[in-house]
């Protein structure tokens, strides 16, 4: 499983980083950055799904 943030849609709510701090972080402006390139370790998949479900801008895509 991989995650992607659509930069045009992200407005920096940081709710992804609250749900999955191992997977999402913040740039200098508070917008999301993905911290893990490539496949996520299995134990972070549930958190990443929660992050996807918590983003108000629906800016996160999960690729299985």
């Amino acid at each position: 499983m991989k995650v992607r943030v659509n930069d045009g849609a992200c407005h920096g709510h940081q709710m992804c980083a609250i749900a999955a701090p191992e997977v999402f972080g913040s740039d200098d402006y508070g917008n999301a950055v993905v911290l893990i390139e490539g496949d996520l370790p299995a134990d972070l998949e549930a958190k990443a799904r929660r992050a996807e479900g918590n983003c108000p801008e629906r800016a996160i895509t999960i690729e299985e």
Binding site: H11, H13, M15, G53, P56
Partner: peptide
């Protein structure tokens, strides 16, 4: 709560700048 896409800080380009 597992899924919480709340908008207490608004949404879109005016998302609360002070939210953090």
């Amino acid at each position: 709560r597992e899924h919480n896409r709340h908008v207490a800080f608004g949404a879109g380009i005016h998302r609360c700048a002070g939210s953090n």
